[in-house]
């Protein structure tokens, strides 16, 4: 069920590991599948498992262990904000509250139009840039004070 473009990308990942260690590509393959589908339905996990020649339950274990995989549908944009201590000291928690108020939703909720899902996140390794948010696991935005958050939300509309 994955597109040939996604499978090609997965092949490039498989090539990084010894020939008898295809399973090593499962994290990248799941990330690619999620990028294509927006989240990870069981069918996508099973498809990845079959492609890599591993048991579907083993791929599911990986998908459910690492917290950047979404096992339930999310909005078009997943906005994750770090509230861990170093970020909290520089406004991470406030940024989360500001986002909640602007979007009218809480953490792990999606706006009624399906546009934005808000997530509270653990350390992103960018504490010097606090407050920090990440869009769809890919794009990191630094120093997100009210003005910058307003700008970001306007852009995501």
């Amino acid at each position: 069920m994955l597109t040939s473009e996604s499978l090609k990308r997965i092949d490039r990942e498989i090539a990084k590991y010894p020939a008898d260690q295809k399973q090593s590509a499962v994290m990248a393959a799941l990330a690619i599948a999620q990028e294509e589908q927006g989240w990870l339905p069981s069918e996508a996990i099973e498809c990845v498992a079959n492609y890599l020649g591993m048991a579907p339950i083993a791929a599911y274990e990986v998908a459910s262990f690492y917290n950047m995989y979404d096992l339930r549908p999310v909005g078009k944009y997943k906005v994750s904000v770090c509230t861990n201590l170093p970020c909290m000291l520089s406004g991470g928690v406030d940024a989360g509250e500001y986002l909640k108020q602007k979007l009218g939703i809480g953490y792990n909720e999606t706006t009624p139009d399906g546009l934005i899902t808000l997530k509270e996140s653990e350390c992103m390794g960018a504490c010097g840039d606090a407050p920090v948010v990440i869009i769809n696991n890919r794009r990191m935005c630094s120093w997100m004070h009210p003005e910058q958050i307003d700008k970001l939300l306007a852009e995501l509309k």
Binding site: K16, M27, A28, L30, Y66, N67, E122, C123, N137
Partner: peptide, 10 residues
């Protein structure tokens, strides 16, 4: 040498 990308697990 290759890069392996994690996916969120401290």
């Amino acid at each position: 040498l290759f890069a392996h990308h994690g996916y969120g697990a401290y």
